[in-house]
Amino acid sequence: MAILITPETKIIVQGITGDFGGRHAKLSLDYGTQVVAGVTPGKGGQFFEYGAHKVPIYNSVADAAKATGATVSVIFVPPPFAADAILECVDAGLDLAVAITEGIPIKDMIRVKRAMTGAKTRLVGPNCPGIVTPGTGKDSFGGCRIGIAPGYIHKKGHVGVVSRSGTLTYEAVFQLTSKNIGQTTCVGIGGDPVNGTNHLDVIKLFNADPETHGIILIGEIGGNAEVEAARWIKANCKKPVAGFIAGATAPAGRRMGHAGAIVGGAEDTAAAKIAVFKECGIEVAATPSDMADALLRAAKAKGVTLT
């Protein structure tokens, strides 16, 4: 089993008639993903046509879900409307909403997250590359690609990847695939300070997934989500875990205010997070080029086979 999504998962694309959403809907269709509906208010009844595909467009997420049985939606709508798009997924009772949109005001996300308390819908993102569960075809086609990741770099297998950064996720996946190590699911949780799903949420899913034999955890400076995940791993996860933290050379105070560090604690520099990783038995990649090798070292130490 993969986590969150499988090749059978039916997907709605919110913003399918926009350039960005349309382009990636096509790439997902090429990948073999079950893109079953689009949503653009006011364009219900039209179709998104691409090659042999004719994807129906609905006015609302609820209509799309009801008509197609889709349980997941991916959001490409512009920042001023993105919070509303997420809440529409919650209202429609979807299992999962994946928000790709970058630039959503923090206040909107604070309110969305509060409104989602107790809801069944999980949010991944925003400002994230999405999720890929590779398929069994050539270049992993036949899988489920939600978002903007390059599908072809994946390979079906047994490693879970979770990251705040899109391009660093691709970097890790590319290294794994180049070494003939496949992935169960790769999850981009996004780079915003307020997001729906954090490292720990994904780590718990990977830990519970029997098909996932090893995990790569990619983080960066700011916040304490990586530290929280690392401490849980130390206490609960027997699987090999490799970690990387970006931002060792980032100038202090440029991305977060002075008082931001005080609430997060003294744990949000790269050096501090790396120290916690080491203390928690996570094999640290010295450079981004070392991520797959770091996982191989961790797996070897635990006698776990990744392929």
Binding site: S163, R164, S165, G166, T167, L168, E171, G191, I218, E220, I221, F244, A246, G247, A248, T249, A250, A270, A286, T287, P288, S289
Partner: peptide, 14 residues
């Protein structure tokens, strides 16, 4: 990408 940009700075220093 911000993560890759940060880690490119890091790897130059490394």
């Amino acid at each position: 990408g911000a993560g890759l940009a940060m880690s490119t700075m890091d790897i130059i220093q490394h």
